[in-house]
Design a protein around this nucleic acid. Structure first.
Lengths: 223, 223
DNA sequence: TAGATTGTTAATCGATTAACAATC
DNA sequence: TAGATTGTTAATCGATTAACAATC
């Protein structure tokens, strides 16, 4: 019988980490890298929080989910904390990813250098259009969607990015899961229905703009 | 003295609407349009919720922030609710928008048809590179960044999309605000610092992937 | 030592869910 | 009428903040 160690701070079943905490972890990491580039060695929770609009308590609490990283009287050493967060997020590993759909958005994603910032590496693109098969875009080969499983296994791809029209997204998503993918970044403007255990992050560009228009239309409350 | 009307359900200062509610409103709208296309006239909070993974109570509570839209015993009429939500979000209006930066990502956004789904219309692009000035991309003219204020005022643009490198983003953001923009969709991987009253929505592609890698690395808790 | 800052517990705040009278 | 479903209040749950002893 597996006995749960109550000294264990990690996000096991006993201590599920809220989604919001994980989002902020990414922001901390990004901010810390900026700070480090500016030559600062350490930073306090108060400083880090204020750069991002969070309280000092929130920063400390978030980190406390995963362990003790700070030094009382000093703060956090940037280099150390960056490394710790990357390990928590899994971005200390190499993540070969695939992009499905080489329309406008897919092509942009193929050329986007920002992915590589944290160990993500686009290794293959897929499209249903046979005239695209074999084409190279920004050094990445475009495969036919029917080769999804083969290439995915060969390259050890676990994360897929959906950049196909909404009408095709659900079917593509199912095929990704069949091919063994466990995480999906979905740019199509539809709700995907996938088995539990497959994590989905959705980015709908129109919805992001809607958040802005709501805020603008209702910004009397701000003024 | 302005007396607050306690019958007023809208998100005035008395009743600030949580950010999470606004996000879900967009999802409801998207889902309702799908449902309507499938020929359904009405839908219950239970059905709508389950399509999106929310409880029925949550759906009803979210909508209750803004008024009464349902019919006891019947549910919600799709057409009516869609129109109501669009009015709440402001997407019943026309929103001319500008894209700043015509690199890989900016170009993809210029060609992205999904923006127009809800009244968003890209009317201008800007870039600091003078060799791009005057070029047309997908029918949109690229202006030099120095013409930002002129074009913004002429076209009545209030929302801007930042698709420039991180190193230039803060400076560009400040210029957008100076030009009169009140909402910014930021694709650059940096935290923007802008006056209160300017709403910022950030989309960091690498961070979205990090959320996936965390979930995958820690998915023992799911299994 | 005095000053700064952490990690953590308790208190507060806000958001989600359950329950149900009112309505069609 | 019986069945379905809303809008809303009260109860629950979870997340944020405040406070402070422990530490450097």
């Amino acid at each position: 019988m597996t006995q749960s160690n109550s000294n264990e701070p990690r996000g096991g079943p006993e201590n599920p980490v809220p989604q919001a905490v994980v989002s902020r972890l990414s922001l901390y990491s990004r901010e810390l890298q900026q700070i480090q580039q500016e030559g600062k060695e350490t930073i306090s929770s108060t400083q880090l929080g204020s750069l991002l609009g969070f309280t000092d308590a929130q920063v400390r609490k978030d980190l406390a989910y995963f362990g003790q990283f700070g030094y009382p009287g000093i703060g956090y050493r940037c280099a150390e904390l960056i490394e710790a967060i990357q390990q928590i997020l899994g971005t200390d590993q190499d993540w070969p990813i695939a992009i499905i759909g080489v329309g406008n958005l897919g092509r942009a994603l193929l050329g986007y250098r920002g992915f590589s910032r944290q160990g993500f590496r686009v290794v293959a693109a897929f499209d249903a259009d046979k005239s695209q098969t074999g084409v190279q875009i920004d050094g990445i080969t475009v495969y036919h969607i029917d080769d999804l499983t083969d290439v995915t296994r060969r390259e050890g791809i676990r994360l897929g990015v959906i950049a196909v029209p909404g009408s095709a997204a659900q079917e593509v998503a199912v095929r990704l899961v069949e091919a063994g993918m466990v995480g999906v970044l979905n740019f199509a403007p539809v709700t995907l229905n996938l088995p539990d255990g497959v994590r989905i992050v959705g980015v709908d560009l129109a919805i992001e703009l809607e958040q802005l228009s709501f805020a603008v239309v209702n910004r009397a409350s701000n003024a």
